[in-house]
Amino acid sequence: MIGILKGMAVTLKHALDGQTFTVEYPETAPEVSPRFRGVHKFSQERCIWCRQCENVCPNDTIQIVQDDKRNGEQYNLHIGQCIYCRLCEEVCPVDAILLTQNFEFTADTKNDFVYNKEQLKNVPWYKDIDPLNSRNPDRNAWVGEGEGEVDYQ
């Protein structure tokens, strides 16, 4: 009986202290970390069409179409199947890809989730931080850029 009363006392304490840990979304949007990986943003100005992101993507989310002179024509992203692993951002040599802090996007059908490069430009940007800076301390650490001799390609 003591144990039951203890449990009831704990719940009552929580009920009466008036504290909540849930927030009223969307009025109170949850804080996301500077490292948060949200929707992919693509910069056509920076891109050198090296196709490394397309190669590293584990589930073919990124599709690049080039013309016969290897100039980029299309950059399509099937954001609906993106798993937000951030490997594309990691391998990009020119910072043309950044995963933003935006996680709020919806569509009526799966097909609406295919973004082309124009649409990717309009993805909402970081909230108040400079995207490149926020990643800067980490960028040196990215995979495989070791300086030792073993690094072959």
């Binding site: 003591i2 144990g3 039951i4 203890k6 449990g7 704990v10």
Partner: peptide, 9 residues
């Protein structure tokens, strides 16, 4: 308090 010491549990 709520779980392991509860007699019913």
């Amino acid at each position: 308090d709520m779980i392991t010491s509860n007699e019913i549990l």
